[in-house]
Amino acid sequence: MIRNSYFINVIRFVLLILVQVLVFNKLNFFGYINPMVYILFLYWYPIKEKRQLFLLLSFLLGFTVDLFSDTVAIHAAATVTIAYLRPTIMRFCFGVNYEFQNFKLTNTTRAQQIAFLTLLIIIHHLVFFTLEIFSFANTLLILKKVLSISTATLILCLLLSSLFSVKKE
């Protein structure tokens, strides 16, 4: 069972990177909207796993996407940030339930899941575009990009997550 979960995560890691760089990075909807669906890896990742490994994996995930899109380490910085903040966000979204041993993402309500995903995406994009544009003179531009691209990412992530969701027995 444990081996199985490792296997699934490795497959997810590789597939999400490939889908991101080969499909979604080329979308350029309205000229600049490229949804970042690889955030789903952090949404799906098991909760009870070691945090250090999770942080390292997230860094690696972001950094690989960076390599493909020639952005040096911006994706990595943003992804590591949400990976570090994930327990805090979960406590905020799911309340004390999250502390229990038998807590599962599938047992929570739809609204809680969406809130969790939205927070992950918004924090990620905020860090990402602040670093990408790299000047506070363009705060409005940063906010515009964060808003529009977050919306696109959220919609696509929700579609993908419902497409590949684990069936409730």
């Binding site: 942080l55 390292l56 860094f59 950094f63 910085a77 590591v80 940030t81 990976a83 670093l131």
Partner: peptide, 30 residues
């Protein structure tokens, strides 16, 4: 955890800032 996070974040920041100011980012490109 926090220290590991800071460490990884510093690496990414350093690389990014370096690439903004310096002409080319020699190793990390497609």
């Amino acid at each position: 955890n926090f220290l590991l996070y800071l460490f990884l974040l510093t690496i990414s920041f350093a690389l990014t800032v370096h690439s903004h100011s310096y002409h080319r980012s020699k190793y990390f490109n497609s």
